[in-house]
Design a protein around this nucleic acid. Structure first.
Lengths: 199, 199
DNA sequence: GCAATACGTCAACATGGCTGACATAAAATC
DNA sequence: GATTTTATGTCAGCCATGTTGACGTATTGC
């Protein structure tokens, strides 16, 4: 970023920055494809800011944890496994694959590391003994907690500084970006408050 | 995910899911480190949900564009360059490096591809001819627009379904997660509305 | 003139994705 | 009971994108 001062300043050149505050203001117009000239550009500027916020926030959200894990010879992929196994003890391999959306070959590499190094353990399913139910060992839970503490302090500060209403808005928008299937599952697992599709 | 039904259900076992709705409810308690027993667990559950929302939203936000770019033999790294150059025509290489937070060697690979394939062009800086100011060619702007349309429809729907207030909250939380330096620059470049640090 | 700066490049390596092919055990079905 | 399907694992190789380290070249600025 540094001293970026776009020499062109397209799209929003006509509209003052404060104008961009009135997002989604024409209620019907924005919902229907037939929008007037101005709202369309405002919308684009607003969307681009949203895209950038997603990029920056995710970049900085992952940076600290990555640096910490690196010292242990682990990567972000390892942590994702740790996190979701810790969050859902007894998770099936297929469920973890569905969460991460990667191939079993990719997963097996990191999961193999974690098992070999004693962070994760497997147990055969009770009703279906083909399944390997995953859970964290004490060691794994300890590591997960350490990394969580890093992320916790970052997110907690952001939530605290933004206030409860903003956090609600954050949740709603993030849910709206998610693929509908996982959104529904998320809302079922946790409280469903006023979701994007109204309760 | 599928049929995950945590057999343990830690932390929040005592609290009903609806209880989790009252996030950051005790105004002073959550801001100070001395929290009572319950709010601490509520906070952890809330934070974990936030972490998961970040993961899921980012996963699904990038999925469509990645698939599209793959057909052209390009990756997410190429698109990031396209996006930020399109957004800041005349961008210096060092500025792009600062945005992406990668090494110049990593950047040079993707940037080289983009220049070679006619998506991006370089021009020497006017005052400082050591600089290579980056901008999109027509071809590059066309591709950027195509990918943007994909992301636009996703984000626009999420924004529309959530409402203006929620989008404000989303912005505030994401800004709060960002590294303060870039947050400040973002707020300077765009309207600064009520940011996390007040005005 | 010389040091610092902006940028580029070569080489080697690590991580974490991917595909394809094949293996095994347990469950489910005919 | 034999067969098929499912859940999982594994080997082998490839690709995208990140890293470090070393070095080269203009150009700027003191």
């Amino acid at each position: 970023m540094a001293d970026i001062k776009s020499p062109e300043s397209r799209s929003n050149s006509v509209f003052s920055v404060t104008d961009a505050n009135r997002h989604t203001s024409p209620p019907a117009a924005t919902a229907s494809p037939k929008v007037a000239a101005n709202p369309l550009f405002l919308r684009e500027e607003e969307i681009r800011q949203g895209i950038e916020l997603l990029f920056y926030a995710y970049r900085d959200f992952t940076a600290e944890a990555d640096a910490f894990l690196d010292k242990l010879g682990l990567g972000r992929a390892h942590h994702r496994c740790l996190y979701f196994i810790g969050r859902n003890p007894g998770l099936k391999v297929s469920d973890l694959l569905a969460i991460l959306r990667i191939t079993k070959q990719s997963l097996s590499r990191v999961l193999g590391d974690l098992i070999e190094q004693g962070y994760v353990e497997q147990a055969p399913g009770l009703r279906d003994r083909r399944q390997r139910l995953l859970s964290l060992t004490e060691k794994g839970a300890g590591l997960e907690r350490d990394v969580f503490e890093l992320q916790r302090s970052l997110i907690a500060r952001a939530f605290r500084d933004s206030g409860a209403e903003a956090v609600d808005g954050f949740r709603q928008v993030m849910l709206g970006i998610m693929e509908p299937g996982d959104r529904t599952k998320f809302l079922q697992r946790h409280g469903r408050r006023k979701g994007p599709q109204g309760v």
